[in-house]
Design a protein around this nucleic acid. Structure first.
Lengths: 229, 229
DNA sequence: CAAATCGGTGAATATTTTGTAAAAGTTGCC
DNA sequence: GGCAACTTTTACAAAATATTCACCGATTTG
């Protein structure tokens, strides 16, 4: 369903870079490494990462220059890696460009936390803001993965939850079957569009006649929507 | 493995709420936001925060009412956020319920300091939390590392204790196997996710059929949760 | 140091969900 | 009414995921 968040590491020390990759990949990020500033910029353009981890001290083109270049081309968040001491007075200035900075030697835990924080802030968040939608006699709660209909918890499989959540996130908006396949099943899913219909039916069985405030409506020739009055 | 101190922000102004979250997360607190009083009370019950930041002026149910409700249900400390002037004569009275209050516009530094102070005072200090969870016929005590089920002490190995404690710290919330491996086994653990299953099974053997108030539930396709009714 | 316990792995088994194909039903329109 | 395009429904097979079991190495305990 979700597309992996891409991270570009620009770091000349292969050991550090590898270590970072190891942990980040474990967290399901898609990682790419550039070992100098020039490469960094180039790979940034091809790879289009969601976030950049950038060493301040780099051969060929220093971190600060790379940061500026990236910033001039996009809003992609950048986290600076700096050796202790290098920062002091500089950092205050640096922070203007970078979204955050971490001083080496760093703890992995720290790095992961900062990455998540920055991603959340930048909106390309893996975590959605409020994972809970409430309507008349209907609660769609993605934190507990529970569907509550008229006060009763209704066991609901993941795909159905995701589909309903997706539709109900923007009530009254029509989604084409194709769009739903892309957005709920993932852009790399190549199944039949009838699949959506079947899931809609399964949801309707659970939601039928519960409230007149909302319903799963078919828009003939187009797709489906979660309609509220 | 320490569980992050949890803070609930009840604040209708999304900008202020976001700003608070930003800073608090940087300090490694786990933050959740409610945007009105009703939601505030509800999320308080599910999220079980260690501290509540509460705006005095709220839609639906005013801050004072929320504070009273929270107080009637627990000793969780509450810090009031109030606009300048609102307080005056009132506040003296209000303060009976809240543990502290801060007037807007506030400085972040100030907020952080107050939070730490209140947490320290309340004993649920940033480091040492209340390491004891009590449910119907179930006590999970991480101080003595003992599991008490229906009055009887059940010998339970460390990993199982930690896993159960972790899940039960935020009831009803679903944890993915990956997250559990990160948070209970440690981010540097690279084992198989099936490991979690096995530990869940072992816990279930110990907890089976003890109470209908809670249970270790599988959320198909997602992970596990400690569910309370 | 031996025995017991714990934690983790892999594989077989069981369960649930998901996708597809095909039949049946609608809708819009001439 | 009748046709074509589209949707709903049903049943089933395939895929994905969870549970359980047996076992082995590591760690702790006595």
């Amino acid at each position: 369903m979700t597309v992996a968040t891409k991270i570009l590491i620009v770091e000349d020390d292969a050991n550090i870079a590898d270590l970072l990759r190891l942990y980040l990949e474990k967290e399901k990020y898609e990682v790419q490494i550039a070992s100098d500033g020039g490469q960094g910029v180039e790979q940034f353009r091809r790879f289009r990462p969601d976030l950049v981890l950038l060493d301040l001290m780099l051969p060929v083109m220093d971190g600060w220059a790379v940061c500026r270049t990236i910033r001039s081309e996009s809003k992609t968040p950048v986290i600076m890696l700096t050796a202790k001491g290098e920062l002091d007075d500089k950092v205050t200035g640096l922070k203007q460009g970078a979204d955050d900075y971490i001083t080496k030697p760093f703890e992995m835990r720290e790095v992961l936390a900062r990455i998540e924080a920055v991603l959340r802030r930048s909106g390309a968040a893996p975590e959605k803001e409020n994972k809970r939608l409430v309507f008349d006699k209907l609660i769609i709660d993605m934190d507990s993965f529970e569907l509550t209909v008229d006060g009763k918890k209704i066991p609901t499989p993941p795909k159905e939850m995701e589909l309903l959540y997706h539709l109900a996130s923007t009530p009254n908006r029509v989604y084409q079957r194709n769009k739903l396949l892309d957005e709920v099943w993932g852009f790399d899913y190549f199944g039949d569009t009838r699949t959506v219909d079947v899931h809609i039916k399964r949801l309707r069985e659970k939601l039928e006649g519960v409230s007149d405030q909302w319903s799963l409506k078919t828009v003939w020739g187009v797709g489906y929507k979660f309609e509220v009055v």
